Amino acid sequence: MARPAALRRTPLPRSKHVLLLVDVINPLNFPTAADLLPGAVRAANAIARLKARLARRGVTAIYANDNYGTWHSDFRDILTACRALPGARGEMACLLAPAPQDLVILKPQHSAFHSTPLQHLLDKMQTEQLIIVGLAADMCVMLTATDARMLGYKVWVPSDCTAAESEHRKTEALRQLHEVFKCAVRPAVRAAAP
C-alpha cells in the first residue's frame, strides 16, 4: 500500500553551508516592537536578497521560528496569521515566506538549538557553516550563534540581515559575537557568499 504524500519520506539535502533564518516570520507583538520594526524592515529586505543569492548556489535554508506560545498550531498557521497582518509586519512575512524546498522548525525558546531537532538536521546534512540572520540580534540571533559556535560550527552573522530594538544593542551584540565567539560579522551586501 502506497503511503499518502504527507507521510512519504523526504531526503535531506547535503549542505555544507546553511542559511538559518531566526524568527523572521514574526507578528512583532510585544510592548517595544515599534522600536524594532524599522530595523526589521531593512533587515528583511537584505535577508531576501541574501537568501535568493544563496539559493542560486544551492545553500539550504532552515527557518527556526518561535511558536509564540501557540502550542496547538504549526508553522503554516503562524505564517498565515503573520501574512494577514497590516502594514510592514504582513509585508515582511510575505517577503520572507519559505520556499517549498526550505526546511522549518519551531522553537520554544530563544536559541534555535534549544529543544529543537536543529542539531540533528545539521548533522544529517553534513553542515559545517551557519549563516544566521533574523530577529533580534541581541537575543535569539545571538543565543543561536553562540550555541552554534559552542557546537563547533563556523558562523557568519551578516550584520545587515539582523535588527534589534536600538542600533546600540545591535552593535554590541554583533561586537560580542565577533570578538568573544569568533563569528564572522560583515554585511551580506559586500560579502562573497560561501
Rank of each mutant, 00 (worst) to 15 (best):
E128R: 12
S111T: 01
T146E: 10
L36F: 01
I132M: 10
G58H: 07
D123P: 00
R190I: 15
H72Q: 11
P158S: 13
L121K: 04
R175F: 11
L174Q: 00
I47T: 05
T80N: 13
V104F: 11
H178T: 13
P187N: 09
M150C: 12
A2F: 11
K51W: 00
Q126R: 14
M150P: 01
S166G: 09
A44H: 04
K51D: 13
D35W: 07
A34K: 14
N29L: 10
R175M: 11
V18K: 03
K51M: 05
L121S: 06
A164F: 04
L36T: 02
A97G: 05
V133P: 05
V185Y: 02
P27A: 03
D147G: 05
T144N: 05
R169W: 11
A2L: 12
A137R: 04
A191L: 07
R49Y: 04
T116W: 06
L19A: 09
K107L: 06
P187E: 13
P187K: 10
T32R: 14
C161P: 07
L95V: 05
L118C: 01
D77T: 14
A99V: 04
A112W: 01
A99F: 06
Q176S: 15
N26W: 02
E167G: 08
I132C: 03
N29T: 06
I132R: 06
